[in-house]
Amino acid sequence: MSAHTRPAWPEIPYRRFSAGRVWALVIRHMYLLRSSWPRLLELVYWPLMQMLVWGFLQLFLDQQASFLATAGGVLIGALLLWDMLLRGQLGFSISFLEEMWSRNVGNILMSPLRLSELLAGLMAMSVIRLAIGIVPVTILAIVFFGFNIWGLGLAFAAFFANLMLTAWTFGIVVAGLVLRNGLGAEGLAWSLIFPLLPLCAVYYPVETLPAFLEPVAWALPPTYVFEGLRAALIDKVFRGDLMLISFGLNLVYLAAAVFIFFRLVRSARDIGSLMSTGE
């Protein structure tokens, strides 16, 4: 075949941000989840176990303490929100780690997918994985313990949005650290967020913390969510002010996380770790 009769190169328009490329990443992970029942089971298993333990504890305490009896669902509600934060971050991080484990990162980073699209795809996957795991558990919480977190309505939407922003912040930093340092850093995906559990006053009011830790707690966005949950369940009020502060803090931390991620990727290109994505 002569050069004159060769087919023309395909006209593929280039877009700076493409929802199609983000969707490509999402369907890649949906194919994976569909092909693996242990992965699907794992999404539900731990939230369900946690909900059962804390739900039964709540039942016991309801019978012992009049305060908790009047504030029904404080513990189980806090547990469900904490699990949304934790599972949201794990959904982001594990989706990214799947690319590392399958040695697919080179293919992804060499494709037209931009880093911002990679992050957007991982955010979408964190919500999808969370929905698969948490929605059935919240329904079982209604069946077993009569606690309906969906009944919080607008407050629940605000809690969820703020917790997702925090989850993504941690997920983005973990992804950058793993790209920069290899799979030796993957343990951070499971552990980095846990200091928030005591500091954000998940199961108790912020005043319970030692005085020197209270400013630390108030610097963390999820603290406002858990305080907001207690206000909704105990005082029956929606604290929009707390949600706005949480949202503002989340935006600052998320921007910082994205900056750190891009710096870590730049460093990874410098040291050549994108070419060898093992340990």
Partner: peptide, 20 residues
């Protein structure tokens, strides 16, 4: 140094990269 995800079928892998 780069592999394709093992659990995805050949067709699914190619669909993902065609979209990318």
């Amino acid at each position: 140094y780069a592999d394709l995800p093992h659990r995805l079928t050949a067709r699914q892998n190619l669909r993902v990269f065609a979209r990318l």
